[in-house]
Every structure is written in C-alpha cells, then in structure tokens.
C-alpha cells in the first residue's frame, strides 16, 4: 500500500509541472499588456516610456525563460509573487477569496447530497416506473439548465416576489461576511448560489447513485440475499448501498474540486468575490502572475482530489494496487 501511495504521489509531479508549462506559455501568447491597460485604461494617452518603466517594474522585460524559471523558483522559496494589477501579494489576494469559494462549494455539496442520495436510491429501486422517470427527468433538467441562467432567475424572482408580498424588494446581500461574524447575513447571501450550483451538482450525483445502485443490485450476493428471502429494505440498506457508495463518493469529490475553480459564471451572477471571479478578472486584466497561480491552485486541488479518490479505491480494492 505504501509503495502504491508513493508511486501514485510521484505521478503528481509531472502533471503539475506540465500544467505549469501549459498555463505559463499559454498566457504569454495572449496579445496585449498589463501595463498598457493599467496606464491607459480609459483611452488617455500613455507615454511609451512609462509603459516600458512599468514593464521593467513587473519584470516583463526579462527573457521569457527567465520569467518561467522565476515562476517555478517561487514554489521552491514559497513566494508566489505579487499581483501585477494591484501589487499585493498573491497569497493575500487568494486567501481573501478562498474562504468564500470553499463555503459555497461545501454548501453546494451539502445541497447536492441531500437531494441526490434519496432520489438516486428511489429511482434505482423503482427502476422504469414513473417515479424513476420523474427523478431522471428532474436530474437531466439540472444538467441541462445553465446555472447562470438559474441564478439570474433566482435573483429576479426574489426581487419581484418580495416586492409583491412584502411591498419592499429584497435581494441577497452583495457583500460577504464570514459565517462566524454574522451567520444570518452569511447564509442569506450564499444559500442562493449554493442552490443554483447545487442543483446541477445534485443532478450529476443522482444519476450516479442510481446507476451505481442498479449495478450492485444485479450482483450475485444481492441475488443471494434476495433468494434468502431478506426484506428488500434490508438488502438495500445493508448490502447494496454500502457498495454503491464508492462511485458516488468519487463523483462528489471530483465535482467538489470542480466547484473550487469552476464557479466562474455563478460568481459573476451573484457578485461573489471568489476565486472564479478573480480568475476572470485577472485574465481580463492580463495579470499573468495572478492567473497562473490561481490556475495552479485549482489544478492542485483537482489533482489532490483525484489522488485521494484513487487511494480510497486502492485501499478498498487490493487488486488495483497490483495492477
């Protein structure tokens, strides 16, 4: 097991290095210049000498491989550098937003789980009945509906609905407060994006639960249990569900990793100051330093999630370790 763990861990490095190379050079191909937009943002004339100065300041005048080496060296010295746009340390900028994104991801996961598990089970047990069709319908609708559109509808619905019923339009807060400072404020802001993304997420997980459970229900030992005359409920709870849970956990953890970096559009709709919006803004402002560190963070989360899932599998199924 230890050997497998180390082997699997060593595989992470080429992936991370590859991601670093890809993101660094991809961003360098983007036309334009952070200095130009900073100095001439609203159409005023920017002196070429000043632009040169700014580029020098940011180290953009150095040869590209030197810049790449500095980028990598930053990981050795644990110095992620500074934002080219605000000049603040990147660790500071990211830590400001990490909390919010993490909370939304956790809340979405929670929403997804409480919907997906019961729906998935009922859908599998009642396979090919109208209940199954409705659940599958609901699930596929969740995957089909763009979550930003759902978000727009939610905000509008709240504004119009509250005005209709209470006379005053209400909308979720647009400023973030940590949950320990003001739990009511915090939840009333984040519950909506959590629902908007959690629905999609739950749809994926519902389908997974259903098909995983269907698989297991066809296994020999379940048939044996049935033949033994065990009550269906006992079969499902005691035998089938436990075994079906593994792929469900997989999809939930991978979706979770996806949410940590992929809330790009939802954060726009709800004005959430999270990692996804930071990504869009730093790409828009050509803040290479910030963009590449953000992407690396997201990739790292993703890769680690996959790693843990693999370890989990290997731990549960010794065959994988030796294959």
């Amino acid at each position: 097991m230890i050997k497998y763990l180390i082997k699997r861990l060593m595989l992470l490095f080429p992936t991370l290095l590859g991601a670093a190379i890809l993101v660094f050079f991809l961003l360098r191909l983007v036309p334009g210049d952070v200095c130009e937009i900073r100095l001439a943002g609203t159409g005023l004339y920017a002196d070429p000498a000043e632009i040169e100065l700014c580029r020098k300041d940011l180290g953009l005048d150095q040869p590209i491989f030197v810049q790449f080496f500095q980028f990598l060296w930053g990981y050795v010295t644990l110095d992620l550098g500074k934002s080219m746009w605000t000049g603040a340390p990147i660790t500071h900028e990211i830590s400001l937003r990490f909390h919010l994104t993490l909370q939304v991801a956790l809340m979405s996961t929670f929403v997804a789980i409480i919907i997906a598990i019961p729906f998935g089970i009922i859908s599998a047990v009642k396979q090919n009945t109208w209940i199954d069709y409705i659940v599958r319908w609901f699930a596929i609708a969740g995957i089909a509906m763009p979550s930003f559109w759902l978000g727009i509808l939610i905000i509008l619905g709240l504004l119009i609905g509250t005005q209709e019923f209470f006379g005053e339009p209400w909308m979720p807060p647009i400023q973030f407060k940590p949950i320990w400072e003001d739990p009511v404020w915090n939840i009333s802001q984040l519950i909506w994006p959590a629902v908007a993304t959690g629905y999609r997420y739950s749809a994926v997980a519902t389908r997974m639960t259903r098909s995983a459970l269907l698989e297991v229900l066809r296994e020999d030992y379940v048939r044996t249990a049935r033949a033994k005359g065990l009550v269906e409920k006992v079969i499902i709870n005691r035998h089938a569900l436990k075994n079906a849970l593994l792929p469900v956990v997989t999809i939930i953890s991978i979706e979770f990793a996806f949410l940590m970096g992929g809330l790009v559009v939802t954060e726009q709709v709800f004005n959430l100051n999270g990692l996804g919006r930071l990504f869009v803004e730093s790409v828009g402002a050509q803040d290479f330093n910030m963009t590449q560190q953000l992407v690396m963070l997201v990739v790292l989360i993703f890769v680690m999630m996959n790693f843990f899932v693999d370890i989990l599998y290997a731990w549960l199924d010794p065959r994988i370790r030796y294959s």
Partner: peptide, 21 residues
C-alpha cells in the same frame, strides 16, 4: 462610506433596487 465592488451592471441595478447600495 463603503464602496462595494459590483461585477456586472445588472447586479448594480439590482443592488440599488434591493437597497444593498
């Protein structure tokens, strides 16, 4: 005073409407 960052114009409009700004 507090200057709140708003990513989209639609959201700024909604914020005034919902009295968040």
């Amino acid at each position: 005073y507090k200057a709140i960052t708003s990513a989209k114009m639609a959201l700024s409009i909604q914020a005034i409407r919902g009295n968040r700004a």
